[in-house]
Write a protein that binds this DNA or RNA. Structure first.
Lengths: 109, 109
DNA sequence: AAATATACCTAATCTACTTAGGTATATCAA
DNA sequence: TTGATATACCTAAGTAGATTAGGTATATTT
């Protein structure tokens, strides 16, 4: 996140991307989020890679290496645990965003 | 924020409340956010008071003490600088929330 | 009399991020 | 052909905004 605005959405973003795409590699996630948000949200690699490792260690993701165009890529995929985690974390985030919208849309009197 | 989900929205929330209400005291903000979000967002005093002090020192808020029902209250109000800060920070946050919604609503093919 | 609510506060800790590097290979432009 | 940019991964140090866990004091409710 190069937004410094909000911390705590990187994990749910990763979970969402993998839930939709099935399989992605880190560098691809950075670009995908840039596209999806028209540059509004810019994931930094310094945040992304440690988070991917953490999710892998926690058993939410698993990894497979693949050679594409003479380049080594590290593909991530949700485990079963990761899939149910994705569901709950995304619901939780959606609820939070609704609540925030409620505050921002609030008009006094 | 007792959500641990998201960090960075406390300041904009304070700015929004004061922009709408004109004047509020800290304890009131905690309850107001609880009401507005149906308990979804629970501001903690440990986060709130230091943030109010910081905004005051930075010249975004000013303070007036008042005695209500035999209780000392510390009312906060936006300064002029605070008002323009509120506008820009709230626009920024709204943009971020839109971007996040875009990610959450994204469906692959 | 004790528990809860109002109303303020702070210090220590946590953690998710930013910043700022690093490695290595491939492609494109001057 | 050399330098810049893109691809693709990584880590360590520092920061900032929270949480957690206390504290004080008075008023109201049980």
């Amino acid at each position: 996140m190069t937004n410094k605005l909000i911390q705590g959405v990187l994990q749910p973003i990763i979970l969402k991307l993998l839930a939709e795409e099935g399989e992605m590699y880190g560098y691809e996630m950075v670009q995908r989020v840039r596209e999806l948000t028209a540059g509004n949200i810019e994931i930094t690699e310094g945040a992304l890679y440690p988070t991917l490792h953490k999710l892998e260690v926690a058993g939410q993701l698993n990894v497979s290496f693949r050679q594409v165009h003479n380049r080594q890529r590290k593909y991530y995929r949700l485990t079963e645990a990761g899939q149910s985690m994705a569901v709950s974390r995304l619901e939780e985030l959606a609820g939070f965003l609704r609540a925030m919208q409620g505050v921002l849309n609030w008009k006094n009197v």
